[in-house]
Design a protein around this nucleic acid. Structure first.
Lengths: 340, 340
DNA sequence: TCTTGGCACTCCGGGTGAACGAGTGCCAGA
DNA sequence: TCTGGCACTCGTTCACCCGGAGTGCCAAGA
């Protein structure tokens, strides 16, 4: 049974442990929180909580430390998101409003998130796959060299250089430009890639080769999932605050190098809900000592990417959750504005 | 006086200390290197080297450790660049040749450099300021919205969105496109920005407002030094190998967050020479325990940016220097090819 | 004059053991 | 059901000691 006072005790343990980084004992607990009972009573509750697996004793006659299960209960039942202060809201607004392009939005978000939470922040660039084609531009640099520029609805711009076997004149290029834009403007990129594939058959035979080369590059750029894997990381210096280097810092540092790992951590779930993954709940056993607070972002239920923070299981969940949600909302709003 | 044998002793001390990370004593020295003299002789030499400030004793009755001055002498006089192995050369070639665009070149270079040296690698993106304008493209998205795309000789592409007060028809836009390209194509961007500034006066009055808006955005993009400060960092996980967290790892981790600091570390000197900055020789007293091996890159004496590695003063200088130089050369070559 | 073996000395690092104290579990009484 | 008391556990800290690596110096040899 989990009665109210035991929950209070658990909450107090989590809060104290997060603050002090040291196992917390019964006496300190009643002193620092106003639970109106004696240490002995708290001890009984602690024993019960330990039986049920919510807390754990590093060794006999040490204080208690929350287990992953304990944090989970705390997050699910006990934590109320810390509201952002007015100053923090202002900081978010002014910093993000100053962004000049998509890259800048992402860079600033990472920085912001890591400063707000004093944790390591990760932000996934908006994925290509869900966005639509806004415009395609063909620029002839020399008669046999064409720069292909693909502009997407998220504001992302991809450019590729194409070498043609035969020279192409400007008027032909203009025709092609119209054709590719007709085939793909406003269309989701998977569909656009398919539509473009058929295009070379429809053009005049003299143009077919050039068209094929250009369309080839375009479809490749559209299906290039390399850019789906792009991720920005910030706040690594916050790792310095962690105590145990070997079990907590080193594996995380290694994980941060591997963007594939980070993507998995963020959870490609595609859901926009705020999710908290605690210690062993995550996919990597080496990262059993770290938790992830993440959420999707994107205008109106439209999942473009994820962002979040990673840190030790002993982290300030209410604060991190609030910050992650606030930043995600703001980023979503900005992307929406740029899209109208 | 610094005779030959003393130099040999210094070299041996540096090599051993770098390998073992422990102060090296006279006995171990004669055993591991084939200096044909007795420990006692070596001790005399060590005492002399210490008097001259090249090595240092952490405490009485400990072995010797090179000082910054000692490393400096080692790098200047004693180190011969370790030639890259065939496998390493191949790895550089295949990895970098696979890059699809400028961003990719930079990303791959960081990765490569950090793997080759097992250190933290930093690569500066090619600066705008030294490059020339290859092409400017104006794309009308809606009648009052124009996407301005600036393509530079380095392959960098900058895009900006412009909101016009009055709608502009496609033929006018085409005229403008010709005008801006005539004014700036092939010109270094500082000069191009100046030339563009006069352009709005020369166009038909109806177009003047649109021209002003577009030129404004262009010149802003050209003089935007934000992108000059872009830097890629990789191999942070290699920090985990360092011993002393507080003095070596933490300050470096903090520095890595500050791209301005990194730029200063790389040395905006503008020179293409391979430079080694050892410990206190650098601009930051907090980083007295770290060294930087860096060089500029760019096609034929044309400095586009810098790249290098940072690590503890106790690092493998010959190996790092060779790797940095090899990668810089390869990157330069690739940028040159893309530029023809 | 340089090199070498010998020797006394220094000092770090690791290991041991005792005192301490924080924290616990349990029990009896309110 | 809560509380105060009490015996017990066990990690932490400190002093202390000892071994070993390494040194500086000296006197003798090349």
């Amino acid at each position: 049974m989990v009665d109210d006072r035991k929950l209070d005790v658990l909450r107090a343990i989590v809060e104290d442990y997060v603050a002090t980084e040291e196992p917390v004992g019964s006496k300190a607990l009643v002193e620092r929180h106003g639970l109106g009972v004696s240490p002995a009573t708290v001890r009984n509750d602690m024993a019960a909580l330990e039986d049920e697996g919510y807390i754990h004793q590093p060794h006999t006659s040490a204080g208690r430390v929350p287990t992953d299960k304990g944090y989970r209960l705390f997050v699910d039942k006990l934590a109320t998101l810390k509201p952002m202060s007015a100053a923090e809201r202002r900081a978010i607004a002014t910093l993000l409003d100053g962004a000049v392009d998509l890259d800048d939005v992402v860079q600033r978000s990472v920085r912001l998130l890591s400063q707000l939470t004093r944790q390591v922040a990760i932000v996934q660039y908006p994925t290509l796959s869900r966005s639509t084609v806004r415009h395609i531009e063909l620029v002839s640099l020399t008669p046999t060299r064409v720069m292909v520029i693909l502009i997407l609805s998220t504001g992302r711009v991809e450019q590729r250089l194409v070498e043609l076997d035969a020279p192409v004149v400007d008027s032909d290029l203009a025709e092609l430009r119209v054709a590719v834009n007709q085939a793909s403007a406003g269309v989701q990129i998977a569909a656009a890639a398919a539509a473009l594939g058929d295009l070379p058959d429809g053009v005049r035979p003299e143009q077919a080769d050039s068209a094929r080369a250009i369309v080839g590059v375009l479809t490749e750029a559209m299906s290039d999932h390399r850019s789906d894997e792009r991720i920005a990381v910030g706040g690594t210096a916050n790792l310095a605050r962690y105590g145990d280097f070997e079990t907590a810092v080193r594996p995380l540092l290694e994980a941060l190098e591997e963007h594939v790992v980070l993507l998995k951590l963020l959870g490609e779930s595609g859901t926009d809900a705020l999710t908290v993954r605690i210690g062993h709940e995550g996919p990597y056993s080496e990262l059993a000592a770290t938790s992830v607070v993440a959420t999707g972002y994107g205008p109106q239920e439209f999942h473009l990417g994820s962002l979040g923070v990673v840190g030790p299981t002993r982290m300030d969940y209410p604060g991190s959750m609030a910050a992650v949600r606030a930043v995600a909302r703001y980023v979503s709003r900005i992307l929406d504005e740029g899209n109208q």
